[in-house]
Design a protein around this nucleic acid. Structure first.
Lengths: 142, 142
DNA sequence: GTCAACTATTTAAGAATTGAAGTATAATGT
DNA sequence: ACATTATACTTCAATTCTTAAATAGTTGAC
């Protein structure tokens, strides 16, 4: 079998896009002193709404034991902090620090810059249509 | 800053889609006994056209020293093989074995199954439009 | 022939990943 | 009330991915 059979598949195209984007995202993360996973975790955390480790684990799509180390490193860098949850003392509530919140903004700004460059080939209408289609796909996930 | 500022960004939506896809792809890889990176390498290799380690490194977007280990493990699993390149004895030529080629087909079949399930929310026309837009974005990369 | 550039590998260190085991806490059933 | 079960998180061990730096072998240009 050759790739030609897959070249016209929607999923195959998405895969290509994913693989290429991965490098760009990792580059942006690295620029800010984060690994890709740390950046992903950072993007999921809030400076105001505490989040349980288990919730983070679900959204990151990895094992709970994994999150321990990731949050350890964010906390080590002063970007996040763990607090006890008085309502359930098994739970650790994670939140962004001021520094973490600031870094998250910068990270988003970097991504926006990339967006401008990489989606420049699409017209405004095409970008709107792309957003509509992606939103529809995302909605059907669950 | 809250996510609301980003929620309407095309790049942000794309990022969400890609992050979710990552888990599915990893799940498919794992089902076939591969890591994500091994599956990626497998998808880049050919059963007929030999490829230099350095070429693989470029397409995988990682360090050359990294590829050594990845190909080691593929070779250990009987999926790929290294051969000397008579034209340039510095170069190792990597190719898929029969088993590797077979596994690659199965991997693609799995991805196709996922596509059917996850893009089911879109009409045929919408899928065609999505393919067109992604192709256009990919083309503008370079 | 010498020197610089290239190809692949090795090594060392950090990070991500999973599974299994362990601790503390909460919820449930009787 | 108490024992059992389930949940939330951590720790540990093993594997993989990652980069940087050092190495060995090969090539090509001068």
């Amino acid at each position: 079998m050759h790739n030609t059979r897959h070249d016209e598949s929607t999923y195959w195209l998405l895969l290509q896009l994913l693989l290429r984007s991965k490098h760009r995202i990792n580059a942006v993360s690295e620029k800010r002193g984060l690994t890709g996973m740390q950046a992903h975790a950072l993007s999921l955390l809030s400076p105001t709404t505490p989040q349980a480790m288990s919730s983070l684990s679900t959204h990151l799509g990895c094992d709970a034991s994994n999150v321990t180390g990731i949050v350890d490193r964010l906390e080590g860098g002063g970007l996040a902090e763990r607090n006890d949850n008085p309502a359930d003392r098994r739970v650790k509530s994670v939140m962004l620090t001021t520094a973490g919140s600031k870094l998250r903004e910068e990270f988003y700004d970097d991504l926006n810059e990339i967006e401008l460059a990489e989606l420049a080939g699409l017209t405004t209408d095409e970008q709107a249509e792309l957003r509509r289609l992606i939103t529809k796909v995302l909605a059907s996930y669950e």
